[in-house]
Design a protein around this nucleic acid. Structure first.
Lengths: 112, 112
DNA sequence: CAGCTACACATAGCTTCCCTACACATGAGC
DNA sequence: GCTCATGTGTAGGGAAGCTATGTGTAGCTG
């Protein structure tokens, strides 16, 4: 997957991963990898700054704890974050409709 | 539509617009606008450099002509460009599957 | 003729988000 | 001690969008 294609969607992926659950950074990375069948193998240099941005935007909050002798930072959605996720999903639907509609002519692919 | 979301997909859009026809730059911009129901209103500063890149990559070729006293540059897909379009459509299908799968939980949206 | 709109093209520079590269730490197993 | 797994952090580079800006021609209107 091209980095450029991912760009602009990463926030949505992170918000969606935190939907209904709290996870620490490493677990988010793993959840995205597994939730995508291995297609999303995001470097920490991508994810941690993005979580920083989401926290600064107020969409995510975090708490430090110590687990098994290691510091861990657990993230959760804020209510603003849940709203943002809702908006991101709507934007995704429009995005796929628009781009897919233009790209369309490619064979057996169907869009509903 | 966020610029960042578009990023990485513009090449595919341009290639798809030139699929099976030749068009000059301004006509490409108009075709994208109309083909997207107005959602894609791309600045010339986006499209012309992108066409430049595609031409440098060998996916697109162009010819100058004069129409009605004005210079016009008409673009067409090369065979490499047709291959690239094919690959871009496959990449799009994978992309929407992956991202959509992770974003998924959003209501009545269905993906097939 | 001047001004405006439409058509048609071009590009410099900025912004921003990814990735690479690099760094640190602890715990478990060999 | 070394390696891997777990867990975190960030500086800086690259590049593709967009804004801003510029050029030109044709046709219409006052």
């Amino acid at each position: 997957m091209k980095p450029d294609a991912l760009r602009g969607h990463l926030d949505a992926l992170l918000l969606a991963t935190l939907d209904g659950r709290q996870l620490h950074g490493y677990a988010i990375i793993e959840a995205l990898q597994q939730g995508s069948g291995g297609a999303l193998d995001l470097p920490t240099g991508t994810v941690y700054p993005a979580l920083r941005r989401l926290e600064r935007a107020g969409h995510v909050a975090s708490d430090w704890s110590t687990v098994g002798g290691r510091k861990r930072r657990t993230y959760r959605l804020t209510s603003a974050g849940r709203k943002a996720l809702h908006a991101e999903r709507a934007a995704w639907r429009e995005f796929t409709t628009v781009i897919g509609g233009v790209l369309g002519g490619g064979g057996t692919w169907a869009q509903t």
